[in-house]
């Protein structure tokens, strides 16, 4: 229970397509608020200082570090998290990450997928170098990245050939 002197913020926003309203300590980051208040634990806190990319979410359509945005700053905005992120790119990437073992522990995976989806929206057939470059702010300790690049390239190919359900 919060003590009465903790400054709070009122937040009303859209999260994964649903209107929500609530309060958060003013100093709480958006990713912490999503995780603790809304139970959306798919976005992870890997560093809390904007380096690792595990906390990526979409804020008004743009992929951002959820640990570098205050919860109060989402007031009036639309937030999407990995749990309900929409679009054919995300669907194709999920399939491809599973098929290519583009994940091991899975902690970085939600951020990776959102970041990769942004790339595929912009660039339907990226080279392996372009994939690596676009993911260069997302840290994975497990895979050595190779199979992540395989997965993104394969998702791109699947989208190009129209072979993705939910598109």
């Amino acid at each position: 229970m919060l003590p009465p002197d903790e400054p709070l913020a009122e937040i009303a926003c859209t999260v994964n397509g649903r209107r929500v309203a609530g309060r958060a300590p003013l100093r709480q980051t958006l990713v912490e608020w999503l995780r603790t208040e809304l139970g959306l634990t798919g976005s992870h806190v890997g560093c809390a200082h904007g380096v690792c990319g595990a906390c990526h979410i979409r804020l008004d359509g743009a992929v951002v570090r959820g640990c570098l945005v205050l919860a109060v700053q989402a007031d009036g905005s639309a937030v999407e998290t990995i749990e309900a992120a929409t679009g054919p790119e995300v669907a194709a990437l999920r399939e491809a990450f599973v098929a290519h073992a583009g994940l091991q522990c899975g902690f970085c995976t939600p951020g990776m997928i959102l970041q990769a989806a942004e790339l595929l929206q912009r660039e339907p057939s990226p080279s392996r170098e372009a994939i690596r470059d676009h993911l260069s702010g997302n840290y994975c300790r497990c895979t050595g990245y190779h199979q992540i690049v395989d997965a993104v390239a394969s998702a791109a190919a699947a989208l190009q050939s129209g072979g993705v359900e939910g598109a």
């Binding site: 990526h56 743009a62 951002v64 570098l68 970041q115």
Partner: peptide
Amino acid sequence: VAHPAIRNR
């Protein structure tokens, strides 16, 4: 400058 998600914000 940094990485795509940083540049978005």
